[in-house]
């Protein structure tokens, strides 16, 4: 393989977490309507951000997270900067607890994700309520976060093997 192709492959591998986040944002903008719309689309970018912020923050810099959130904002038509702020908050939580979570059991990390998701849910709800001038219902948000938390292990397993096999080129 030529040096150039190798370089390209390395860039592609390094950009993979970002790409996964972008795909997650696109998933959120597509009319998936799981189970006839009774189940909200999980926030895959949230999982991506938490996972890589914890295990390898170098592969998902703040700029990438900002871009992922911005794409989500642009596609959902909401106020710009909302989801970048949310995702960066998740990264902050993950980074600050990194030394605790690294090397722990999977379900401990999962619990950590649930806590992080709850914290950002509260932030999101508070902000949107302030923005709209009324206390908004939390049902939809709770359901979406529960769905995301529920699917976290599946994504974590997939992302974990991707990370080991592709991203860090073992």
């Amino acid at each position: 393989m030529s040096a150039r192709a190798e370089n390209l492959a390395r860039v592609a591998r390094a950009a993979m977490p970002t790409l996964l986040g972008v795909i997650g944002a696109l998933m959120l903008a597509s009319p998936l309507r799981l189970f006839q719309g009774s189940l909200p689309t999980p926030l895959v970018p949230l999982v991506v951000v938490y996972f890589w912020s914890l295990y390898s923050p170098g592969h998902l810099p703040a700029a990438s997270i900002f871009a992922i959130g911005l794409i989500q904002d642009l596609l959902s038509g909401g106020p710009l900067g909302l989801w970048p702020a949310i995702y960066l908050a998740v990264q902050y939580i993950a980074l600050s607890q990194q030394s605790y979570f690294l090397g722990r059991e999977v379900h401990v990390v999962w619990m950590g994700f649930a806590v992080a998701a709850m914290i950002v849910s509260v932030i999101l709800w508070l902000f949107m309520s302030l923005f709209s001038g009324a206390l908004l219902p939390i049902g939809g948000l709770v359901l979406q976060m529960m769905t995301t938390i529920a699917v976290y292990p599946v994504f974590a397993i997939v992302f974990g093997s991707l990370h080991r096999r592709v991203v860090i080129e073992v």
């Binding site: 903008a29 597509s30 009319p31 989500q72 999101l124 939809g140 948000l141």
Partner: peptide
């Protein structure tokens, strides 16, 4: 055709 929709909890729109 609907080709997209916002799936955020507090954004309700379709593309």
């Amino acid at each position: 055709f609907v080709i997209g929709e916002a799936n955020d909890a507090y954004a309700h729109s379709m593309i």
